[in-house]
């Protein structure tokens, strides 16, 4: 599924003295089978941008297109099923007595029959590697486990696109890697994925395209190497290392991912 935002503008509390223009003229798109990474400092508008993608927040002006169709013309429930949205610290919204029931909340709201709900719940729990937690209370789990339950709750609705706002914030490195693998899996299954993160290294690993936000504007949108090499102040360590070495040695090129950076650096530095 293709999500496109065009000339998006959002003003919080418009018309009052505390009005804040959180987004101005942001245009970008994400295709099926693609991961779009959104990076930028705190208050740059990343989170405001992503909540527009299923219109939980309505733009002040501009539009959101889903497969070319104006999202405002779509039914809200339909839109929210097709575009899954996982907020920051989504585990704070877990509420059911068991993991199973919590994950079933979304599918139940879709009006699916019991059997289909159960099938989806067990499938999603399996995908996230937490099948063994099904009958536990979500409140008694570890941080990483809770996070996965919360993400499962959105994935169980069977969205065609998923928007993840800082899905790995505050997780240990192992859980983070596992979660990023899940994200890659979703992409390979053809979903459109939008992932917001402060962690540039993580975005460098997974993103096919990158959007750099600054003060409510999309400062750069494009291939990771284009965005990161043009804005080294917002680049991951791999890019900074390549730039530092490239100043003295020719042929470094523009690697972004960790593995390719290691390879390039080994080559130019003579193994």
């Amino acid at each position: 599924m293709r999500i496109e935002v065009k000339n998006l503008r959002h003003v919080y509390s418009p018309g009052t003295d505390s009005a804040v223009e959180a987004l101005r003229d942001v245009s970008l798109s994400v295709e099926g089978g693609e991961i779009l990474g959104v990076v930028g400092g705190t208050g740059s508008g990343k989170s405001t941008l992503v909540v527009h993608m299923n219109l939980l927040l309505e733009p002040t002006s501009g539009e959101v297109l889903i497969d070319g169709m104006d999202a405002r013309a779509m039914k809200k429930s339909e839109l929210r099923r097709r575009v899954g949205l996982v907020f920051q610290f989504p585990e704070s919204a877990l509420f059911a007595p068991t993991v199973e029931e919590d994950v079933a909340f979304g599918p139940c709201r879709l009006g699916l029959d019991e059997e289909e709900v159960r099938r989806r719940v067990s499938e999603t729990l399996g995908m996230l590697g937490i099948s063994h937690l099904a009958s536990r209370s979500p409140h008694a789990l570890s941080g990483g486990e809770k996070r996965r339950v919360a993400i499962a709750g959105v994935l169980a609705m069977g969205p065609e696109a998923i928007v993840l706002d800082e899905p790995t914030a505050g997780l240990d490195p192992a859980t983070r890697e596992e979660l990023l693998d899940v994200v890659r899996g979703l992409k390979n299954a053809g979903m459109s994925v939008v992932i917001v993160s402060h962690d540039l290294d993580e975005i460098a690993e997974v993103a096919d395209r990158v959007c750099l936000m600054e003060r409510g504007e999309a400062k750069a949108v494009g291939a990771p190497e284009d965005v990161f090499y043009e804005h080294p102040e917002n680049a991951p360590d791999t890019v900074r290392a390549a730039l530092a070495v490239g100043e003295r040695l020719p042929g470094v090129g523009r690697p972004v991912r960790f593995a390719e950076t290691v390879e390039v650096l080994e080559r130019v530095m003579g193994g």
Partner: peptide, 8 residues
């Protein structure tokens, strides 16, 4: 908002 995203 989180629950609304899940269809509430």
């Amino acid at each position: 908002r989180a629950q609304a995203a899940r269809g509430a």
